[in-house]
Simulated scan of single mutants.
Amino acid sequence: MEVQQPPRSSPWPDLDRLIVSSRPARDYELMFALELAALAGRRVLDCPGGASSFAAEAADAGADVSAVDPLYVLSADELRRRLASDVELAFGVHDERPEIDSDWLAEQKERWRVAGERFFADYRPDGRTRRYQPAVLPDLPFADAEFDVALVSHLLFTYDAVDPDAGLRELLRVVRPGGTIRIHPLVASDGVPYPVERVLAWLEGDGHRGEVVEVPYGKARGVGRSLIVTRGAATR
C-alpha cells in the first residue's frame, strides 16, 4: 500500500492517500529478512496487505495468515480496477527517474501483475474467510498477543497516514511476547531517512528490542534497511 485517493466507501476517511500494490511473497522475504517456509505453523499478520500475493502464498506454505487493509471493503472487481490504475501510477513515477533501470522496472511490473492474479484468486471480501479483513492501524480487530509475526510494508515510516508510535504500539499489543514486528522501509516517501533511533530508544525503555538490519530489497533506491522489533514480556 502506498499513496493516492481512497474510494468514498472507505470507512477510514482520514486515510486520504492510498495506492494498491501487488508485491509477490518473494519481495516480502527480501524486505523482511525472512523465509516463507519458516512461517509454517505460525500466526502471521500482513498490515497493510494491499493486493499482494503474500497471504495466499504464505497460507500455501502452512502459515495462518490475516491480511488487513482499509480497501478490503471493496469487491474483487472494484479492487482489480483500482489496482490496474494504481500500478500504472506507481511505475509511472519510477519511469521519470533515469537512475532506475528500465529493464528492472519492466520485470517488476510483470511480477506485480502475476502476484495480483494470485491475490484475486484467493481474495474473499464477503466474510467467508478471515484472511482479508478491512482494518487499519492503529485499531486492529484482533486479540492481545494473537500473532507470532507482524509485517508492515510501506506504511509506518513512509507516509503520514498513521502515527508511527501509535501504530507500533498497536502492533506490540497484537504480537505475542517473543514475537516479531518487521517494518520496511525506514525512509519517508520523499527519501528522507526516518529517525529510527528515537523509536529504538522508546522500545528499549518499554522492555522491547529493536534492530535495524540491511536487506537486499530496494538497495538501488536507497531503502535497503528494515526494522525488526522483538516484543518483550509486557507492553505499556
Rank of each mutant, 00 (worst) to 15 (best):
W202I: 01
G191N: 04
L171Y: 04
D144Y: 05
P177M: 15
P195N: 04
L200Y: 01
I181F: 00
L137C: 13
E146W: 08
E170M: 12
L171I: 05
H184K: 01
G205C: 12
A150N: 10
R169K: 12
G167L: 05
P177N: 11
T129S: 04
F142W: 06
S189G: 11
V149D: 10
T158L: 09
P141N: 06
A143P: 13
R169Q: 07
Y123P: 05
V152I: 09
Y123E: 08
L155P: 14
P138H: 10
A143S: 10
D163T: 04
S153E: 04
V199Y: 00
D163I: 06
R130E: 06
H154M: 14
L137Y: 15
R182C: 15
H154T: 14
R169P: 13
D126L: 07
F142L: 08
F157R: 01
D206E: 12
P134R: 03
G179W: 13
P193S: 00
G178Q: 07
P141Y: 14
L168N: 00
D165V: 09
R131K: 11
R173V: 12
D139L: 15
P134S: 05
V175A: 03
P141G: 09
L156A: 13
R130T: 15
I183L: 03
D165Y: 02
R131I: 05
A188Y: 07
D190K: 02
D206I: 00
L200D: 08
L137D: 12
L203Q: 01
V175I: 09
T158M: 15
L156S: 14
R176A: 06
P138D: 15
G179T: 04
V187F: 03
I181H: 00
R182T: 05
P141E: 12
P138F: 11
D139F: 08
E204S: 05
E146Y: 08
A145M: 13
P193N: 00
F147T: 06
A201H: 15
P141F: 07
V196F: 13
R130Q: 11
L168T: 01
G179I: 08
G178D: 03
Y159R: 14
V136Q: 14
P195S: 04
L186R: 00
R173I: 13
L186I: 01
P195I: 09
Y132E: 06
A166Q: 09
G167M: 02
R128W: 05
P164N: 02
A166N: 03
